[in-house]
C-alpha cells in the first residue's frame, strides 16, 4: 500500500562447530513491528569470501527456514532458543562455505 516502516535488525555471527572446527556463521535477524508475536526474518549474510550452500534450511537468497521459526509461539519462542537451534542445524548443514581461493 506504499507505506514504509523502520525495522530493527540484529547482525552478528553464530558459533558453529563442524567437522571439529568452530566457524562464525554471519547472520542477520529482522525484527518486524509485530515481533515477538511473529518470528524474526532470518538471513545468512555471506561475506565476499563465502558462498551460500542452499538446502533444506537456506534458499539461494540466504533466507533461513527452520521449524522453530515456522512454529514460533510467544512467549515460549525467543531469540535465545532460535540461535540455539541455528547452532545445531548449521553444525549439521553449514549454510555457507568459503569460496575456493583462486591461485
Amino acid at each position: 500500500d506504499g507505506s514504509t516502516k523502520d525495522l530493527m535488525s540484529l547482525t552478528g555471527t553464530v558459533p558453529v562447530s563442524y567437522r571439529g572446527n568452530t566457524y562464525n556463521i554471519p547472520v542477520c535477524l529482522w525484527l518486524l513491528d509485530v515481533y515477538p508475536y511473529n518470528p524474526p526474518i532470518c538471513f545468512v549474510k555471506p561475506t565476499s569470501a563465502m558462498m551460500i550452500k542452499t538446502g533444506k534450511h537456506v534458499d539461494a537468497n540466504g533466507k533461513i527456514y527452520l521449524p522453530y521459526l515456522h512454529e514460533w509461539k510467544h512467549p515460549q519462542s525467543d531469540l535465545y532458543g532460535l540461535i540455539q537451534v541455528m547452532v545445531v542445524v548449521f553444525g549439521e548443514e553449514p549454510p555457507v562455505f568459503s569460496r575456493p581461493q583462486v591461485q
Binding site: G12, T13, P15, Y18, R19, N21, Y23, N24, I25, P26, K45, P46, T47, A49, M50, K53, P94, V96, F97, S98, P100
Partner: peptide, 13 residues
Amino acid sequence: KSPTPSAPVPVAE
C-alpha cells in the same frame, strides 16, 4: 569486538 565471520571449506563430495 564481534568475532570475524568464517565458513568451512567445501569438502569435495
